[in-house]
Design a protein around this nucleic acid. Structure first.
Length: 890
RNA sequence: GCCGGGAUGGCGGAAUCGGUAGACGCAGCGGACUCAAAAUCCGCCGAUGGUGACAUCGUGGGGGUUCGAGUCCCCCUCCCGGCACCA
């Protein structure tokens, strides 16, 4: 055995061996339990960042651990290869997105291999390849035919200078990131996936996912947002500016929820006499406190009221400014304007003003709300600003409201000033009010979802083409199977806007139905679509005949999915939705894609930037800045930079720290060990260079310890006599086997690798201190070193491969099994108990492990440490916690 | 703004079911080895007071439940993630 630990030698050797022997190649094998271990695939942004190292090491530890426990393990890897950054890079560097992407994939694949991951590379896939996305197109056509994909108008960010649609990320402080122009909202037709049809199942199935973190399930529940409420119809007073025109069916509907779905938005236009304004509320108990009604700027009533009202039209137009991002909408100043229209209160017949308000969302409920300033914070602020009445109608069950209200009282309570409903509790009143409204045909109980259908159209180039042909006679025609895939041209030149929109060779085609001249859809799909089913394709990436085959049902569901917490809602919800879609077209038999989920915390780092004006920022990498006399400056020019927040490492903020130098300097094992040791997987990890040295030191120490042990000669294991251990030896062996139990539990159940590593460090520390060179001690050390090396193998596989071979000539890590706890080693006949007086630690005693409660109490009361603090007072109470402590209360 | 999460020594973190706060590591300090340095090895290392045994305080802030709270409950502050076109 080599005296020196040389990762630069043993790591490439181990990786070459694993590759040559194809040891991680997975095949369907029904004789063993299967374990499908999947880490979220990377976007090929250029090079690996620390988040990747963390993510893939966690997955690798679990994959290798389960392999040692006898599972048939699959751990695949691929590339989430479509996306916006490729177009940005193409613009910046004058290269084609495809070439840039493929070069990044090649580079990053090399980096991943250098990490020594137990990945089955034969299953590698890239979502930008036609053999992958053709199945996405195929599924699209099936869903389109089933009505689960439909077209409707949707609002996007529009850059009026570059004449292009902007992603939310490209809107900085309300301006386009390149042009600096004020962004506007614009409605365009898009394809939508009907995820709301699965809302109930997506919500209910969360209860059948015990392997998911509670916080993720809570976030998804809140996102889906099932709320039970009441739809209330407020009859409209005739418009003063319109001549009454009774609708043919009697009472017309001024309803907005699905107005957009009929692409032209015809629903509700021409509302006149006898119409109603529908609102949705979860607080029908506050109905008597309504002092105005507010509608969204896009609501048909607002549009109609603006006809001939220049001021209102201007206000509605001003609501069009700014981005569509909900965070922006929610934090902007609440503004509104009276439409001049009024509605009747359904019970009091009072006339109530209708406002247009920029805080009412068209996409939720009916796009209209009843405003109750006394019992809703936003309505309260709005009413104060516009001097609208505040009418309290709910008070606490056991108290009176302090009037006038200083702030909204938002709790439920008891009704007053509410006609026949006064005196009822909120819950009771909601039921009763809904019933009365129903009898009056002015409303009813309704369930509303916060979840909206998923708009998947993107006006971008580097994505999967939407397989639709627009025919002037046949309309939207899905591309037939035989003509799939619709291949995205890769040899393009990028400037502002998508090149395929200017490429007749792409979009000019004939209609699959009538063979007449037609045009292809030039929008591409949201990249979330690709990442919603890749986990299933890994089971059969080579299948050229169908999307999935029976192998998918062998491997699915994924036993362990690992990825960043930032994907807790969107990606994970879309993937769950897709799994159900694939189930319902007969492709998979399970209900959920991921049985167990580990959401790793973010790797975060400081951000630095310089303002370039017009809302543009140049982000500077942490590696390129330094402190000079208390000022943070760019190393290159010595000029100051602005210090931003500590945020997740991201390409867009250029705050990623390159793990490559870490690997180059110390090797993959040190990088892996450090990442696993620095913080538990679910916590966010603030990057710092410190600590890497310590991880490397531990590996050198481990190597040296094994080296010295091996060099001392072969161990005569047949002279290992368990019954003849000295107390010290017995203590050590108990520690070893307690440690094995702890490490197993840490990895398998707790998934807390930092403490698993700490336990191994403690074992090694104890082993080094263990004195003696007799056969007993040597055998004990042999047992301990083998166990430590095997327990560390999932985390630092390269060094452990060398060490196990040195410890047990002929042994191979790839066939090694996880150490087993020897229960007999855990036996202990004396234990230590803490002594407390009034909950404060005052001493400790040793008692027999099987001592009775009485004898423990006596021993505790007799202890001088305790008596000193009892002041001669009698014990009021003695609490004995078996195996832990005794607390004496005086 | 809304939803979810977090805060423990100089630093990363540990304390798994309400029961010894600070495991393990980093940094620092002292010592051994060395001509010297690096590496390695040994020891110390929350704060305050005390020569010391030890005592008091201490888990973001305030309150509560309990024999006992880092852990449970209520209120607050700050930080992080998500908010549907970043992935």
């Amino acid at each position: 055995m080599e005296a020196q630990y040389r990762p630069e030698v043993i790591e490439p050797e181990a990786q070459q061996h694993w590759e040559d022997q194809q040891v991680f190649r997975a095949t369907e094998d029904w004789s063993k339990p299967k374990y499908y271990c999947l880490s979220m695939f990377p976007y090929p942004s250029g090079k690996l960042h620390m988040g990747h190292v963390r993510n893939y090491t966690i997955g690798d530890v679990l994959a290798r651990y389960h392999r040692m426990k006898g599972y048939n393990v699959l751990q695949p890897m691929g590339w989430d290869a479509f996306g916006l950054p490729a177009e940005n890079a193409a613009l910046a560097n004058n290269v084609a997105p495809a070439g840039w992407t493929y070069a990044n994939i090649d580079y990053m694949r090399g980096q991943l291999k250098r990490l020594g991951l137990a990945v089955d590379w034969s299953r590698e896939l890239a979502t930008c390849k036609p053999d992958y996305y053709r199945w996405e197109q195929w599924l699209f056509t099936k869903l389109f035919e089933k009505g689960l994909i439909y077209k409707k108008m949707a609002t996007v960010n529009w850059d009026p200078v570059d004449l292009t649609v902007l992603a939310n990320e490209q809107v900085i402080e309300g301006r386009g990131w390149r042009s600096g122009a004020l962004v506007e909202k614009r409605d365009i037709p898009m394809y939508f996936m009907r995820i709301t049809a699965y809302a109930d199942e997506l919500l209910n199935e969360l209860d059948n996912l015990p392997g998911w973190p509670e916080r993720v399930k809570t976030m998804q529940r809140n996102w889906i947002g099932k709320s039970f409420g009441v739809e209330i119809h407020f009859p409209l007073l005739p418009s003063p500016s319109l001549t009454p025109s009774p609708s043919p069916s009697g009472r017309g509907e001024l309803r907005a929820a699905d107005a957009g779905e009929k692409a032209g938005g015809a629903g509700g236009e021409g509302a006149g006499q006898g119409d109603v304004l529908k609102v949705f509320t979860t607080r029908a108990d506050t109905l008597f406190g309504v002092t105005y009604v507010a509608v969204a700027a896009e609501h048909p009533l607002a549009r109609q009221a603006a006809v001939g009202n220049l001021e209102l039209a201007a206000f509605i137009h001003s609501c069009k400014q700014g981005s569509v991002a909900e965070a922006d909408m929610a934090t902007m100043e609440k503004k509104g304007m009276d439409t001049g229209r009024k509605v009747y209160h359904p019970f009091t017949n009072e006339a109530i003003p209708v406002f247009v308000a920029n805080y009412v969302l068209m996409g939720y409920g009916e796009g209209a709300v009843m405003a109750v300033p006394a019992h809703d914070e936003r309505d309260f602020a709005f009413a104060q600003k516009y001097d609208l009445p505040i009418k309290p109608v709910i008070k606490p069950v056991d108290a009176e409201l302090a009037l006038p209200l200083a702030e909204a009282y938002v709790e439920q309570g008891v009704l007053f000033d509410s006609g026949d409903f006064s005196g009822r509790t909120s819950q009771d009143a909601i039921e009763k009010i809904a019933l009365v409204l129903k009898n009056l045909k002015l409303g009813e109980k309704r369930i509303t979802w916060r979840l909206r259908d998923w708009g998947i159209s993107r006006q971008r180039y580097w994505g999967c083409p939407i397989p639709i042909v627009h025919c002037p006679t046949c309309g939207d025609v899905p591309v037939p199977d035989a003509q799939l895939p619709v291949v995205l041209p890769e040899d393009v030149k990028i400037d502002i806007g998508s090149p395929i929109k200017k490429m007749p060779s792409f979009y000019e085609t004939t209609c699959p139905k009538c063979a007449g001249a037609a045009t292809r859809e030039t929008d591409t799909m949201d990249t979330f679509v690709e990442s919603s089913w890749y986990y299933a394709r890994y089971a059969c990436p080579d299948n050229a005949e169908s999307m999935l085959d029976e192998r998918a049902n062998y491997w699915l569901p994924v036993d362990q999915y690992i990825g960043g917490i930032e994907h807790a809602i969107l990606h994970l919800l879309y993937a769950r939705f897709f799994h159900k879609l694939m189930r319902d077209v007969g492709l998979v038999s399970s209900n959920e894609p991921f049985a167990n989920l580990l959401t790793q915390g973010m790797v975060i780092a400081d951000t630095y930037y310089r303002d370039l004006g017009e809302g543009k920022r140049q982000w500077i990498n942490p590696a390129d800045v330094e402190e000079r006399e208390g000022v943070t400056v760019l190393k290159a020019d010595g000029q100051p930079v602005t210090v931003g927040g500590t945020e997740k490492m991201a390409k867009s903020k250029n705050n990623g720290v390159d793990p490559q130098s870490l690997i180059d300097q110390y090797g993959a094992d040190t990088a892996r060990l450090f990442m696993m040791f620095a913080a538990p997987p679910e916590q966010s990890l603030e990057w710092s260079d410190a600590g890497v040295e310590g991880a490397n030191r531990f590996l050198r120490r481990l190597w040296k310890t094994v080296y010295e042990h091996v060099e001392a000669g072969e161990v005569e294991s047949d002279r290992f006599d368990l019954s003849g251990l000295t107390p010290t030896q017995h203590d050590f062996r108990r520690m070893l086997h307690t440690g094995i139990a702890k490490v197993s539990d840490d990895i398998e159940r707790r998934k807390q690798f930092n403490t698993a590593i700490a336990a191994n460090m403690e074992l090694l520390n104890a082993l080094v201190k263990l004195e003696g060179n007799d056969a007993q001690t040597r055998a004990l050390k042999q047992e301990a070193l083998e166990a430590i090396v095997l327990m560390l193998a999932p985390i630092v596989p390269h060094i452990c491969r060398s060490l196990i071979a040195a410890l047990k000539p002929g042994a191979c890590l790839m066939s090694a099994e996880w150490p087993v706890v020897d229960e007999s080693a855990l036996v202990c006949d004396e234990i230590e108990l803490m002594l407390q007086v009034n909950g404060k630690l005052r001493g400790k005693i040793k008692v027999a492990a099987d001592a009775s409660k009485d004898s423990i109490e006596q021993a505790a009361l007799g202890s001088p440490d305790v008596q000193k603090f009892m002041d001669g007072k009698p014990a009021k109470k003695v609490v004995v916690v078996p195996g832990r402590l005794v607390n004496i209360v005086v």
